[in-house]
């Protein structure tokens, strides 16, 4: 297996694992509070829709769009998306944004679901179906986006899909075993790592798309990833310092009135 295929699998696995953890929280909340059968049918419907999306769009892009165009447009999207993840991760790590807390989200979901109308005595519970399908579809769309963009830019759609499928199976398997939200998964750290990966690969491929002949070829990716890690950590430090100074200034100024 080539190193680029391995990196594609790992990146897709990590990014997908984060999204699947979020989807599992919603599915567990619906299943536990309402009806498992309708919830699982909703999950299945969403998974079929997502698989079709990846197969249709991924294959169409790989087969019919020239690789330079794919790298510019799709690599550009990957860069934009990666930078969004990375900046949010930096702000979370620096304390400027609330960290993702699956246990709290789970409790909120359960409280919202208990306020819904009662479960029908027979047949489908459409509330379970809709909430589970919507949750998996929305979180899964991010997985599909990453698989298609990452896979198409690297010409590695199958490895990207494999990474996502393994992540899905693993997260689902663990959730079934422990039967509660996977709050112990270091989601914020994973998001930081994925943000660096998407930004690094997005820069590389979109750069190739505009015609940059990277001096060290594929090895440039490592330099880009290292550069983004260092600068992101520096960003975390600066955000923390800024917030600490601001809090100190406010404490010294005292409460108004």
């Amino acid at each position: 297996m080539s190193s680029i295929a391995l990196v594609t699998i790992v990146s897709s696995f990590l990014a997908s694992a984060v999204e699947f953890v979020e989807a599992v929280t919603i599915v567990l909340a619906v299943g536990v509070t309402r009806q498992w059968r309708s919830t699982l049918i909703g999950v299945l419907a969403a998974l079929v829709a997502l698989t079709l999306l990846v197969v249709v769009f991924g294959t169409a892009i790989v087969l019919f769009v020239p690789i330079d165009v794919v790298r510019l447009v799709v690599g550009g999207f990957l860069l934009i998306y990666g930078l969004q993840w990375l900046t949010k991760a930096v702000m979370r790590a620096g304390g400027a944004r609330a960290k993702h807390d699956e246990a709290a989200i789970y409790e909120r979901e359960i409280a919202a679901l208990r306020a819904e109308p009662p479960i029908p005595a027979t047949g489908m519970d459409w509330i379970s179906f809709t909430v589970a399908a919507k949750g998996v579809l929305l979180e899964g769309l991010e997985v599909a986006f990453i698989v298609v963009t990452f896979g198409a830019s690297a010409g590695m759609l199958a490895p990207a899909a494999l990474g996502a499928a393994v992540a899905g199976a693993l997260v689902l398997g663990v959730a079934v075993l422990v039967h509660r939200p996977l709050a112990a998964v270091p989601e914020n750290g994973l998001k930081f790592a994925v943000g660096v990966m998407l930004t690094g690969f997005g820069t590389f491929w979109a750069g190739e798309g505009v015609g940059i002949d990277w001096p060290a070829g594929d090895a440039t990716i490592l330099a880009l990833l290292a550069g983004y890690v260092v600068l992101a950590l520096l960003g975390v430090y600066i955000v923390r310092e800024r917030l600490t100074h601001r809090r100190l200034r406010m404490a010294v100024a005292g409460p108004e009135n």
């Binding site: 400027a96 015609g211 940059i212 440039t220």
Partner: peptide, 30 residues
Amino acid sequence: VRANLPAPTTGALLFVLVTAVGGLSIAWAI
């Protein structure tokens, strides 16, 4: 690239610009 500037310079500039965009966005947000 169209102006035939060296690839290392262009690549480095792209990296710096992307970092600057991220940095500015964080600065505005906080």
